[in-house]
């Protein structure tokens, strides 16, 4: 059988669609709105309107892993230092939600992990505080300074990042081909326990579409992007500019060994799939939770992640 890779991949995407987890997403949204309202009540005129970010907002979410983030833009005069802003927000969230959620400090955000509800669902949100550069300047340029804890993101030992999150969201807006490839690479990352940053995958995919001729069907596009990654991440002068601040090179988050590793991963993936199309299934599995939903009534079913042969049970008796 010549497995049609593009059809298979579009199936992979459809079993990972967010619409399968609508109820869960609604719970996330409800919590997000609740948190936003509390923040507005608490900080009033010290902040601009909190806004949504994360993979859900960017339409790059997959139903096995998605983020709903809240960005809180603080005014310049609200706090003396970024650390004080971060700590104040943390203390407030802890006081307000500490009995229903685990509140924890993360790299640039404060995580709210709500206790598992009666349906067994876990809702979690990241709240990202940022501060404008100068008083009243945010409304003009949307630029923010984020407090950076335990800096391992960039090689410099900075304690803050200047960026423009609106610009980052804008950067991916309307890029539906890119998004499909990004989702597939995130699916690969998730099931194969790769720890490359989603933001890096996002930027490099968009850049590949810009710099290379990425065209054809879904598989050909994915292959094109993987090829681009394979060939470019090992180049010393290869840069990935943060759309929110061109001085941030997101490639700096990878050291040389990690770059080589990423390039090798892509090479193996491409080779193995071109060698035998069936291998695509082990790198990009269907989400079997929703495979049934789609195919329970029609078609022959294949079990999840089965890029492997089907072998019968050793002994069976018929009458």
């Amino acid at each position: 059988m010549s497995l049609k890779k593009q059809e298979y991949l579009s199936n992979v995407l459809s079993t990972h669609r967010m619409s399968h987890v609508e109820e869960l997403v609604n719970k996330f949204k409800a919590k997000r709105d609740e948190v936003k309202t509390t923040l507005q009540d608490k900080y009033g005129s010290d902040i601009y309107s909190p806004f949504d970010s994360g993979s859900f907002k960017k339409h790059t979410a997959i139903n096995i892993k998605f983020d709903l983030d809240i960005v809180v833009p603080f005014k310049r005069n609200s706090f003396d230092t970024l650390e004080k802003m971060f700590d104040d927000l943390y203390e407030y969230l802890e006081a307000e939600f500490g009995d229903v959620a685990e509140v924890r400090k993360q790299k640039v955000s404060i995580g709210l992990l709500f206790k598992t509800d009666d349906d067994g669902d876990d809702v979690n949100l990241d709240v990202v505080p940022g501060r404008e550069f100068n008083q009243d300047q945010y409304s003009e340029d949307r630029k923010l300074n984020l407090h950076l804890r335990n800096n391992t993101i960039f090689t410099s030992d900075s304690t803050y990042i200047q960026t423009n999150i609106q610009e980052q969201i804008e950067h991916i807006n309307g890029k539906s081909d890119e998004r499909m490839v990004i989702r597939l690479l995130k699916i690969w990352k998730h099931y194969n326990n790769e720890d490359f940053k989603s933001f890096l995958i996002e930027l490099i995919t968009i850049k590949a579409f810009k710099k290379d001729d990425i065209s054809g069907n879904l598989w050909e596009k994915l292959e094109g992007v993987m090829n681009y990654i394979k060939e470019n991440v090992i180049k010393e002068d290869f840069k990935l500019k943060d759309p929110g601040n061109s001085n941030n090179n997101v490639m700096d988050t990878l050291d040389n060994a990690e770059r080589t590793n990423l390039s090798n991963r892509m090479e193996t993936l491409i080779d193995r799939i071109n060698n035998n199309a069936q291998n695509i299934k082990s790198y990009f599995p269907l989400n079997d939770d929703f495979e049934d939903e789609e195919s329970s009534s029609e078609g022959y079913g294949i079990k999840i992640g089965s890029g492997i042969a089907s072998t019968p049970p050793s002994t069976e008796r018929f009458g």
Binding site: M1, A277, Q278, T311, P313, E316, F318, G319
Partner: peptide, 22 residues
């Protein structure tokens, strides 16, 4: 009225059929 079969010793055969022809 009865048929009992064993698949022992055939595992490789099934795997090859998959590897070679899908």
């Amino acid at each position: 009225y009865l048929f009992e079969r064993s698949a022992l010793g055939l595992e490789e055969k099934f795997e090859n059929i998959f590897k070679e022809k899908g």
